[in-house]
Amino acid sequence: MAGDDGRRSGVGAMSESPLMETRDVAVQFRVRRGTTRAIDGVSLEWRPGEILGVVGESGCGKSTLARALLGLQETAGGDVVLHGAKVAGKRDFRELRRRVQMIFQDPYQTLNPRQRVRAIVTEPQIVQDVAREEHEGRVQRALVDVGLEPDQYLERYPHQLSGGQRQRVAIAAALVLEPEGLICDEPVSMLDTSVRAQILTVLLSLQRSRGLGLIFITHDLSLAWSLCDRIAVMYLGRIVEEGSARDVIERPRHPYTQALVDAIPVPTPGGGGARELLSGELPDATDVPTGCRFHPRCPKRFEPCDRVDPELYPVGGVAQKAACLLHAPAQGRGADV
């Protein structure tokens, strides 16, 4: 997989070489009490045109991972890889940030309140040295693509826009560089039902029309299930399960994923039933439990879980993996969960 096709493989082609990868990436923060292992060895693939979901509770490291992917967060180890080539140094990351863009939960905090929509959407092109004569055309195209009539919106300020329109502008500003990938950090969690459906529709149509790869970082598992091709579940800085959206959410193999799925409110009255909820909260990443990091909260823990740190083992589904000793080949207890 490494090395082949370092150049653009033609946007939209579902080539097998990943758009981006992380290889054993770690992010650490120094705090008074020691070191917080925010990301603790994450290897992940994101293929061209793929919709990848990264899910987990707040504090699990999913947003930090996104920042690390774009070089917005210094890593303590591991590699970030773009089309098979390791990204290293300022120039590489600058190039990476042209080809992969990011949008955030609250567009009001990321849009400059003193800039008009025209300036907001134009600016990334100045930063990335796009030829001047292309600016206007690209701005128009990006706005049309997100469903905003350019004539109506170009001269507006962010405060003259609704929440949904602001998020559209943020998406347009990301699109204007014609990226291959867009990382969306909780893109709709602040929006109402009907507006959020509109924004998601915009993102999905971009994925189809431009072959744009998407990463959805979200704590909303049903959203991830409905939209993503693949899902990676994070817990305390690690990926504990990954696989196709259907496999991971409908047939979860890791006890943590099972607990998350079980906690999703069911839109059928009485459908929640008597569920057994996870007790406690996400532990502090400064003090990661020994062995399996989930064992103190795990309803299925057994003898070696507090000593042995599990790897991602293959489980039932297609390319589905779970980091749980129940599925470790040598344990002899595999496949019964």
């Binding site: 609704s162 949904g164 039902t193 009907s194 507006v195 459906a197 509109q198 998601l200 529709t201 999905l204 049903s222 959203l223 299930w225 409905s226 939209l227 959206a245 259907r246 959410i249 409908e250 799925v261 999703i264 839109p267």
Partner: peptide
């Protein structure tokens, strides 16, 4: 009816229900 249709039902059909156009 449209609000309910927009809720994903896990195990059922994936994808997005058509959004309710416009805003309140």
């Amino acid at each position: 009816k449209l609000l309910l249709d927009s809720l994903p039902v896990i195990g059922g059909e994936r994808g997005l229900a058509p959004p309710i156009p416009g805003g309140p």
